Amino acid sequence: MELALFDLDNTLLAGDSDFEWAQYLISRGVLDKEVYEARNQQFFDQYKAGTLDIFEFLDFQLKPLARHSREQLDAWHREFMDTRIQPMMTEASRALVNQHLAAGSVVAIVTATNSFVTGPIARAFGIPHLIATIPAQENGAFTGQPRGTPAFKTGKIERVEGWLESLGLCWGSFARSWFYSDSHNDLPLLGKVSNPVAVDPDDTLRAHAEGQGWPVISLRG
């Protein structure tokens, strides 16, 4: 049995669903362009630089969910999938996912982006498991706060190990384990698997991957 884990943003997707969700809400007039666009870009730049405060970012990202009904949010998300996400789902990404699924691997997306945004994306790829940052809810409505450990940096390892335990599994259950990522923020989890793969990597991850002899691939085709 093998384990195949995928980062989502700028790995399986040729773009960032987190960033694009905020941009979509700005385009719909849900968020104020002047206030939110610069802030969204600032957080994105911090993520790329490895300086992101995940809790500060989640406060920014999750607060809009608490201001609207789930019915309205779901309607917006359907349009978001059609206009922003589907164009970022490349044939190469679909083929790689399907290759692991066909081989009988246990397949999951592991992403810092919250599960409201990413759940439908995982389903669109046909991936059965999603390990994502969880938005807290009360009485069916989002509170604007995260629940539990965010799936970010070392938090990804904690969340993956908790998920495996819930399935009665552990790292040793697998003959081989894979993690595909574009970001140096994912070096902790890349270091845990037997087969780390850098996908269209940032400069820091590319240098690390080349130094370690890890495969470097592109899914943008």
Rank of each mutant, 00 (worst) to 15 (best):
E2I: 13
L8I: 08
L8E: 10
L12A: 07
G15R: 06
D18K: 05
F19Q: 03
E20A: 08
W21L: 02
Q23D: 15
S27R: 06
R28Y: 12
R28D: 06
G29E: 11
G29C: 03
G29A: 11
G29W: 11
K33L: 11
K33A: 15
E37L: 12
A38N: 11
Q42T: 05
K48A: 03
A49H: 09
A49Y: 05
T51V: 11
L52A: 02
F55H: 15
L58M: 10
D59H: 04
L62S: 09
R70K: 13
E71T: 15
E71F: 14
E79Q: 14
M81D: 07
D82I: 12
I85C: 03
Q86L: 15
P87K: 09
M88H: 03
A92Y: 05
S93E: 06
S93F: 09
R94C: 09
A95M: 09
A95I: 07
L96F: 10
L96H: 04
V97L: 08
Q99V: 10
L101T: 13
A103V: 13
A108P: 02
V110Y: 00
T111A: 05
N114Y: 00
S115H: 12
S115D: 12
F116E: 00
F116K: 00
T118D: 08
I121M: 02
F125G: 02
G126R: 13
I127Y: 05
P128C: 12
L130A: 01
L130M: 08
I134E: 15
P135V: 02
A136Y: 04
Q137F: 12
G140L: 09
A141K: 02
Q145P: 02
F152L: 05
K156R: 07
K156A: 01
I157E: 04
R159P: 00
R159V: 01
V160P: 04
E161S: 04
G162A: 07
L164C: 10
L164T: 01
E165S: 14
E165V: 15
S166T: 13
A175H: 11
S177A: 14
D186F: 01
L189C: 00
K192W: 14
A198F: 08
A198C: 10
D202R: 01
D202K: 00
L205R: 06
A209F: 10
E210D: 11
G213Q: 13
G213F: 08
P215A: 11
V216S: 11
G221Q: 15
